[in-house]
Nucleic acid binder design. Structure first.
Lengths: 194, 194
DNA sequence: CTTATTTTGTACTAAACAGTACAAAACAAA
DNA sequence: TTTGTTTTGTACTGTTTAGTACAAAATAAG
């Protein structure tokens, strides 16, 4: 194990890059800007990310999903009422700061921007989003079995429905400045989950 | 009224450019590509679009909205059951071709991409989307007065709810390849409108 | 036919872009 | 301390970008 030591942690660097990608999107983020945020030079970058910007973006989607799911699952396991937690999670999208609302959902943004630019990456982002959907499904199914909710609707379909609501909020939150109105939309959308 | 005659129609040219913007987004559409699609050279372009690409994009949003609303309003006036037409309109999003699904909603795409790139343009796209929302609201209000639907929920909120569903579909349709599943999500979302 | 006016096509510019080449630096092991 | 290995920083490359400059072309009016 010889060689000059690496001056940066890959995950940390990718997380820094994610901030840029999240705010500006893939196309509008220049490599120079990404490297500045990551705090490394081109030499290091192209050594560790052979496919450059595209590889960085793909890995940022993966790491984001990993991080986000970890947080979600931790909070879920801490909650004593899972279905209530799920509703609360969706509902709290309205409580995000204005800045957060302008950024939206990182995976959703990726699916949108990549859909006609890089199909493979779009599909990959879609698969990561599906992981969240599957967690939703499990929570709903459990709640149905425990009779916490009365609806007999298919849990998988309900999960897809919730993902769609969440996708909608990802766009709607960019222009709906009234937080209460946003909350009303979400609450109306959650009525089906009873 | 002298001078060399213009070889292109501005609206037609903008519509051609819209096809490119729609498919690839703002940032990924190069001026050269746009001009090629419009069938004009740089001389003509920068004479008629002083602010270049940005002006072209803004005018494409306006023209798109104008065209789309005209079509929507015409079909609406031809329908004998307005609320049924509205439901059908939302539901038929699932019937779009795969190619159309990858493109999504032009205004929604604009709101997303512009939200941290060009706030003014994002807000403008948002205002154009609001026009559709207001039409939705009127249809719903009329249906409530005519007792075609029983729900007493606020028409404006229901309209916002529908726009949010539509925004959600704009993202969900990119990765949900099963048309029937998409239809199920939409139908579930429309149950509230009874 | 001349003149004024507008549009067009093309050559050009300067900046930004992603990515490469490579020598120097910084280490572990021998 | 020498050797082999990996990482780093920087200078460089070729391409693409959006946009400009300007002469030539095409018209209407006088």
């Amino acid at each position: 194990m010889a060689g000059r030591p690496k001056i940066f942690d890959e995950k940390d660097a990718i997380r820094k890059a994610t901030e840029i990608f999240w705010k500006k999107g893939y196309e509008a983020s220049s490599t120079d800007e990404l490297l500045a945020a990551m705090g490394i030079g081109k030499g290091s970058f192209y050594l560790h990310f052979k496919d450059g910007k595209k590889e960085l973006y793909q890995r940022s989607l993966d790491l984001f999903s990993e991080d986000a799911l970890k947080v979600f699952n931790r909070k879920l396991s801490e909650a004593n009422d899972e279905i209530h937690f799920l509703k609360q999670y969706i509902s709290s999208l309205a409580d995000k700061t204005t800045e957060q609302k302008q950024k939206g959902c990182y995976l959703g943004n990726g699916i949108m921007e990549m859909s006609n630019i890089d199909v493979k990456t779009k599909e990959h982002a879609g698969k990561l989003m599906e992981k969240l959907e599957q967690i939703f499904e499990k929570i709903i199914k459990n709640a149905q079995e425990k009779k916490q909710i009365k609806t007999k609707k298919d849990a998988k379909l309900l999960a897809k429905y919730l993902i769609n609501i969440r996708n909608g909020i990802n766009i709607t939150m960019r222009t709906e400045t009234d937080k209460e109105e946003l909350k009303n939309i979400i609450n109306m959308s959650l009525e089906i989950l009873k």
